[in-house]
Design a binder for these strands. Sequence first.
DNA 1: GGAAAACCATACTGCGGGTACAGTTTTTCG
DNA 2: CGAAAAACTGTACCCGCAGTATGGTTTTCC
Lengths: 216, 216
Amino acid sequence: MRKGEATRERILEIAEAAVLAKGFGATSIEEIIAEAGITKSGFFYHFKDKNELAHELLSRYITEDHRILDQIFSRATELSDDPLQAFLIGLKLLAEVMADLPGGHPGCMVASICYQERLFDRRVVDLNREALESVNVRIRAHLETIVAVYPPREPVDIDALAEMVSVIVDGGIIMAKVMGDPDRLVRQILAYRLLVKQLFAPAIESAAGRPALAAG
Amino acid sequence: MRKGEATRERILEIAEAAVLAKGFGATSIEEIIAEAGITKSGFFYHFKDKNELAHELLSRYITEDHRILDQIFSRATELSDDPLQAFLIGLKLLAEVMADLPGGHPGCMVASICYQERLFDRRVVDLNREALESVNVRIRAHLETIVAVYPPREPVDIDALAEMVSVIVDGGIIMAKVMGDPDRLVRQILAYRLLVKQLFAPAIESAAGRPALAAG
DNA sequence: GGAAAACCATACTGCGGGTACAGTTTTTCG
DNA sequence: CGAAAAACTGTACCCGCAGTATGGTTTTCC
């Protein structure tokens, strides 16, 4: 009972690394079981098919993702009471986390699955959608606390601005991967940060009066 | 000679539609030849393997992509002499083009290939990189004409800002696909547009003095 | 010690990419 | 028109991979 759980975990870890490195389609069950030192029968004892593996993998990944995101932004709100400041600090922390990823990028499993939808059933695709949506909701909540204090200089689509975090990360990962330069993702996040800062920063005293806005 | 070229084109068109709809991995040669009404031998007469099909497909797609982009921004510079205005108009046109795509999205072949790199050889991956880079160069050139006239309110990474167009489009496509809502991509482009506008718009007289900046 | 859990071994189906090769039709060009 | 080249067809086959079937064996836990 315990033993089985351990093996299952090992399979998931091996699979996660392989999928993030090469994508789902390019990861064969045979190579997973080879690395795990088990047989095909062993694998199918734990997962009825590759779809179930994908579901479990995505589920784990999302949980971890949310954990990291919450950690980053709770730390950020610790560091500043000002909502705009906190958000900007959070983005900087996010950029740092992304810079420190081992292989240079997590490959973003969400996008990896998105581009091979046909390989998966609806449960996986739905889970993918829920994951993205919940990130959007989190970010949006932060942005709303900002607009309450700093009216934007022009009416802005808060939903789009919130979604833009995921969009920047996913698009940035693609850019980083294609260019072979992990730093591109970091630069994208920081560029987004600067734009948000410009949008909410008070117009007149931005340069002179509020040195805090330059920090973070 | 002429006949062969025609068949080749037909294969490419069928393949393009299928790949954009379902991704490369999910598009089998067998379904392509079935739709084209030829045999396997016929297919391999034109393309030595799936890789070569990918390369040709990507090459075509890139050419078309650049054509559209150039058309958009040359039209935009026709409509306004002001570089910032022209760029903002260009982004709006881009958003409109993206909104009008038949299936709701082109699927962005670049990203589709990016997430299944192992399926392709270096030539395809390199071509992918060159395509992205050349878009970046184009956008960057526009941005430089802007900063020459409108010094940004804060030092900004022009390269990152230029890359952000591709990033927003690729990330936006993912968002749109996962959410099942093509409009998300459009909103992302418009949000980017607003942020750029805010960044370069003169600080004081933005609200009052320059009505032109609100247009486009 | 016995039942359930956690496997192993083997053999097989089916799909898809790709090869080999021999033959046939169609087109083009002199 | 006729011959060569181009543009295919047909068949048969190999390989890797997902997935199934089935029956047996070892561990683990109570």
